[in-house]
Amino acid sequence: MTVLSIAADLWRQAFARKWFLVLGAAVTLFLIGIALTLRLDVVDGALSGLRLFGRPTTVEITAVDVALRPIFKAAAIVIYYPFTLFLIALCAEFAPSLLAPGRIEHMLSLPVRRWELVLGTYLGVVGLSALFSLYGAGGLCLILGAKTGVLTLRPVFAALLGTVSFAAVYSAMVAAAVLARSATSSAGVGIALYFAGVLAGYRTSLASMIRAGLPRQAFEAVTSLLPRISALGTVASDIAGGRAVSTAHVAGLIVGFLAFAAAVLAAAVWGFERKDF
């Protein structure tokens, strides 16, 4: 309960900030724009005409869900990559503000354990990421579902994978905040881990380009520990695009990401416990 209270408190802080309101408004405007300007002509479950801003666009007459796959795929990629990067920058301040002088002493004077503080902050931010991803992807699914009569949740699953990816990155941002108490270093660690994770997704092909021996072994050892952000991104895009994915592979990636996040959070708690305030 304490963890949830801390997360709820963080949500109150977030919605008081104008950047989060801007983000919410931008997603809402995008959804309203799609709802008002896109006209789809559907005959017996096949998309036979498309009008964007009143201009007819030549389309192949094909099954609606097949025709919408590129749109869902594009939405999944936008949510997974640029949106996650945007969230890293936007949420970098939360964890350092938790440890800000004055506030941390106040929090520790309450009957709250240190790990609850870390976990509450972490879950609050990851919950925000999930909320915005689900709002964007779910809204798009509902609007296109209402216009075509074909409802698919594939983009929502893809958006949730984006949240899993952000969860892994944000755990490292929390750990950085515990060590350095700086929003800049938290954001820096988040962005560095994000790009390192993108590279880690291609580690097997990249390793073959590195000289065999110690350098390659070192590269493989380091990247084996990192979340494979690009690999999960490919899975997200495949799910949104209607391609079959290996359940075992996806489950391994998701649990692996969550294990990485839990490991880094545990290290952050360990560091937090050692600090004197």
Partner: peptide, 30 residues
């Protein structure tokens, strides 16, 4: 002594996560 379990858990989870993510990595892409 209460702190060390956090570090031990972190290490175990990191290695477990690395193993899970490495599975299927060398499978040829469809």
């Amino acid at each position: 002594s209460r702190r060390w379990p956090w570090l031990a858990a972190a290490l175990a989870l990191l290695l477990g996560g690395a193993w899970l993510m490495s599975r299927g990595e060398r499978m040829p892409a469809r």
